[in-house]
Each structure stands twice: as structure tokens, then as C-alpha cells.
Design a binder for these strands. Structure first.
Lengths: 102, 102
DNA sequence: CTGATATTTAGCTCATTCGCTAAATGATGC
DNA sequence: GCATCATTTAGCGAATGAGCTAAATATCAG
């Protein structure tokens, strides 16, 4: 640990991860997608795309953003891709919010 | 309460507020600004602007975004404006994260 | 009132993001 | 292999966002 490190600073990797996560959560559609997958346990791209007003390719890209942020994982199951939520990355946000507690 | 309401849904106002808050937090500079104000208790626009690489007007606009999201409050003190953090809006984020708990 | 200080507002440019449609990929069934 | 189904990738146009400089506003000191 570097001496004199700013309290508000984490490791560079963590900062980058937080940034990606918060940016991914910044779009309402992506928050909804995350919720949808979470409450269903998992869902195929088609099931997700079917629930939203946007066209499928648009949803696909939202999924990509969520995946790049580490918020969802993908698994090929035959010709469909099944997505599930990786909650651990959400902890980065809680952790950041923790600085403001009390 | 409307029957059959989606669990992932809140009131329209709350959703809009959450959206503004998350969007405001999506920018690293704004997160840093929020931290800076929080740990100092309060800070004038000049004190804040002085700590960041960006030009003052850029920081001013970030402050505006934070204020519009209800994350900071402003008070005129002579010719300076003193900002302080309003933590209550951050609770919206924690609340949203709560859907994913356990 | 005049000048200085603190901060915001206006307006511009560049980059990114979001939606779309059309085309490409990859797996399955015959 | 050929057709089909599920999904992604490519690429475009419009909208938004972030940075900047220059000008405006507001308060205080004399």
C-alpha cells in the first residue's frame, strides 16, 4: 500500500471495475434486464429480448455491456445462450456507498 | 397499489430519482467530487474545483448534475457557494441493490 | 460607483451511446 | 449439405455528454 494514499482511492483495477459496473447500471434498460435475469434465476437471450420494447440487437448489446462489467455470465446451451447474474460485482457498489455511511 | 405490479417497479418518481442518481454516479469525477465534499463535511465550489484536473466550468457542471440528482445541496455564503452531501438519495441505490441480496 | 473575487451560464467541438436494419455466425434437424 | 432457429456483429444516424474558452452574474471592499 502506497503511503499517503487517498482514502477515496482503491486499487486501479477495482476503480476500473467499479466504473464499469456503475456505468452499466446507469441505463434503466440494463437495470431491468439485470432484475429480470435475477428473478428468473437465469434466462436465455431470447427470453430477455422478448420482454423488452427494444429490438433484439439492442438488447444483445445491453447484455454485452453487462457482461463486460462482470454483472452477468453467459453459457451456451445448444443454440441458445443462457445468462445469469453475478452478484459479486454489485458488492463494489455497496462498498463504495459504504464510505458515506453514518 | 396496482394489482399485478412488477416487483422490480417502484413509483414513477422513485424510478426517475434512482435514474438521476445512478446517472450522476456514473461519472468518476462526480463520484470523486461527492467523496471530497463528504470527507470535508462541506466545501466551496472553488475548493472543489481546485482539487480536480478539469477546468472550473467543467466541475461546476458536474456539481449541477449532482445537485439535480439531489445528491448535494448548495448554500450561498457571501460570494462563495458551499456544497454539502445529501446522503438520503444514496439510499435509493442501496434499496435497489437490496433486490439482489442473498 | 468601481474594481476585484467567486462562480455560473453560453456556446462550441469531439467522442460516446443508443436505437435501428441488414447481414453474419453457429447449432440443430432432416 | 440445406434449411431453420437463436443470437450476435456491422454499420448508420440521431441524441447525449464531456471537455474547453469566453462572457455573464453576483457579492464584497473601498
Amino acid at each position: 500500500m502506497r503511503s499517503g494514499a487517498d482514502l477515496t482511492e482503491g486499487t486501479a483495477e477495482k476503480l476500473a471495475a467499479l466504473d464499469a459496473v456503475v456505468a452499466a447500471l446507469a441505463h434503466a434498460a440494463r437495470r431491468q434486464i439485470l432484475m429480470t435475469i435475477h428473478f428468473r434465476g437465469s434466462a436465455s437471450a431470447g427470453e430477455i429480448a422478448g420482454r423488452f420494447a427494444h429490438k433484439w440487437p439492442t438488447t444483445t448489446r445491453h447484455l454485452r455491456v453487462l457482461e463486460d462489467a462482470g454483472l452477468v455470465q453467459q453459457e451456451r446451451k445448444g443454440r441458445s445462450r443462457v445468462y445469469s447474474v453475478d452478484k459479486s460485482r454489485l458488492a463494489l457498489v455497496s462498498e463504495w456507498l459504504g464510505w458515506f455511511e453514518r
